[in-house]
Design a protein around this nucleic acid. Structure first.
Lengths: 131, 131
DNA sequence: ATATCTGTATTATATTATATAATACGGTTG
DNA sequence: CAACCGTATTATATAATATAATACAGATAT
């Protein structure tokens, strides 16, 4: 369900957080859907339960999920807030990258063509990169 | 000359590498210009010389600078290669970010307006962010 | 009620990356 | 020759990450 890179310099718990954020934002995991338990997911991924819990704790702190002792962990239903927060953050990153691009010397038209190339890539087949 | 954040999660030597790459690419440091020596820069920044050397070694490996034992370290003159490599890398980042933007639901027009906002920001006053 | 699941918490330990410290060697220059 | 350069090595300290081993309390089904 979650493919992680154990060799990456990026900590496992961070990878988990990012993956789950994406799945929640993209609707793969839907509001109030129950997540795999800390121990079960730890077994499935052959990872220590504490590492899973660390990710879950952070996800709860950021409002992506909520946990009920004795019952389980679930996708939070305030998807709207999470979504717009993500969009805002992405806009900031886009702005920074564009400024860097201009600073280096790229022209507006070049950036536009990249945008359109991205659009075609999305329409074609949706693929992911393993960072 | 180089302002670093010693508290950052990002390692000092990585910060140094990024700063110097920017300064080289942007022409603040010019081809064949001599860089501060390992020991001198270490004193100025109150950092261990080994940390400086680690940054210099990596910068040399990537072709940004060259070092001559007994003489010093200097900005490499193959700026063109470095430059185009940087552009290529930036295009990749831009493409990824655009795909993410489309994936989340942003429209092409929204991205275009961000690009134009970035362009205006550049024309206004050139400022930097401290990541 | 009891076994078994859930989240949560704590303590100890191992591992790795980062950074410092202390030296040392050889080339360059004045 | 003294004072700089880059480079290399070894040891140590520190922090972040991850594992391991427990423990406690709530929920739930048999």
């Amino acid at each position: 369900m979650f493919d992680l890179d154990l060799r990456s310099r990026k900590p496992i718990y961070e990878q988990l957080i990012e993956k789950m954020k994406e799945m929640i934002i993209h609707g793969v995991l839907k509001p109030n859907e129950q997540l795999p338990s800390v121990r079960l997911l730890a077994k499935q991924l052959t990872i220590n339960p504490n590492t899973i819990q660390k990710a879950y704790r952070e996800l709860e702190r950021e409002g992506y999920i909520y946990s009920i002792p004795g019952k389980g962990s679930f996708v939070d239903n305030k998807k709207e807030a999470v979504y717009s927060e993500k969009v805002k953050q992405l806009e900031e990153n886009m702005l920074k990258l564009c400024q860097e691009a201009f600073y280096i010397g790229l022209k507006k038209e070049q950036i536009f063509s990249i945008v359109e190339r991205a659009e075609r890539a999305i329409r074609g087949g949706e693929e992911h990169d393993s960072n």
